[in-house]
Design a protein around this nucleic acid. Structure first.
Lengths: 142, 142
DNA sequence: ACCCTATCGTTGCTGATGCAACGAAGTCAA
DNA sequence: TTGACTTCGTTGCATCAGCAACGATAGGGT
C-alpha cells in the first residue's frame, strides 16, 4: 500500500491550522489590520499586564525577533507602550495603552464568538480535540 | 473575564501544527533536505502517477507558485521529471523518477512510523481528533 | 574591583511565502 | 478563420519568518 498524504496527520493538521487562521484573520481584519504575531502579542499583553519581550516570546510560541518587531509596530500604531524595567535595564516592559485595551476588548469578543462557532462545528469531538492539541503541542526534548 | 490566548483554539491549533511539523521535519531531514512544499509534492506524486501542477496545487493546499518552484527544485535534484502533456500543451506532466520513488519509499516508512507515534500519544482521542481536523479543513464559502 | 560568561532585545540577512502580472496555449462563438 | 476570453505554469516583487550576530547590561567567582 502506498503512502496517502491526505491521511497523514501532520498534513491534515497543517491544512486545518492554515484554514482556521485564514477564517479568523478575515474576522478581525475589519477591526484592525493586524498580522498574526501582532494579534498574539496584543492578546498576551491583554491578559498579563506589563511583561518583557522574553516573557511574551515564551508564551506565544514565536521567535524573539518576531515579537520584537511586532511590538515595535504595535507601539507605532499606539496600542502598546514600551518603558524600561527599573530593576534590570536589559528588559523592556511592554504594556497596552488605553487604545490597546479598547482594541483588545473588541477583538476578544470577536475571538470568543469565533471560537464558539468552531466548537459548534466540532460538536461532541470538541473536548477530545482540545486535549489532543495540548498533547501535540508538547515539544520533545531537544 | 478577560480573553485567554492559551485557551483559544486557533492559537492552540497553530502551535500544535508548528510543533508537529518541526518534529516530523527532524525525522526526514536525515534522509533528504526537503522543505515542506517539496515533501508534499513528492508525496502526492508518489500516490498519483503523472499529474499537472494544477492537480498538485488543488490536492496539497499550496499556491501554484510554490508548487511550481518546489517541482523545479525536485527536478534539479533528480527526483522528478517534467514532460509535456501531449494533448494540452499548457500542462506539464510531473512524475517521480526512479530516484524519486526510492526516496519516497523511504520517507513513506518514516512518515508511517511517525504517525503511529502521534496516534499512540493521542490514545483514544485519535479518531475524534481526525474527524475534527477534517471538519475544520473545510473552507467557508467565498 | 575585576574579568568572564550569560542574558536581553534589536537588527541584518537569507530564503520562503503569497499575490499579481505575464506569455503561451486552448476554447468557443460568430 | 478570426478574435475575445479562459486557463496553465512561470516569474517578479514585496513581505515575512527564522537564524545568527551584535551592543548593552547583569551576575558570579576570585
Amino acid at each position: 500500500m502506498t503512502f496517502q498524504l491526505d491521511q497523514f496527520l501532520p498534513y491534515r493538521l497543517s491544512v486545518a491550522a492554515t484554514q482556521v487562521s485564514r477564517r479568523f484573520a478575515a474576522r478581525y481584519a475589519a477591526e484592525a489590520g493586524l498580522t498574526i504575531p501582532e494579534w498574539r502579542v496584543l492578546a498576551h499583553l491583554g491578559q498579563s499586564g506589563a511583561v518583557s519581550v522574553r516573557d511574551v516570546t515564551a508564551r506565544v510560541a514565536l521567535d524573539k525577533s518576531i515579537v520584537s518587531r511586532a511590538a515595535s509596530r504595535l507601539e507605532k500604531a499606539g496600542y502598546v507602550r514600551k518603558s524600561s524595567h527599573g530593576k534590570d535595564q536589559r528588559l523592556v516592559a511592554l504594556e497596552l495603552t488605553e487604545a490597546g485595551r479598547e482594541l483588545m476588548a473588541r477583538l476578544g469578543k470577536i475571538a470568543e464568538t469565533f471560537q464558539a462557532e468552531l466548537l459548534a462545528e466540532l460538536g461532541e469531538d470538541g473536548p477530545a480535540f482540545r486535549r489532543a492539541l495540548l498533547q501535540l503541542s508538547k515539544a520533545t526534548a531537544p
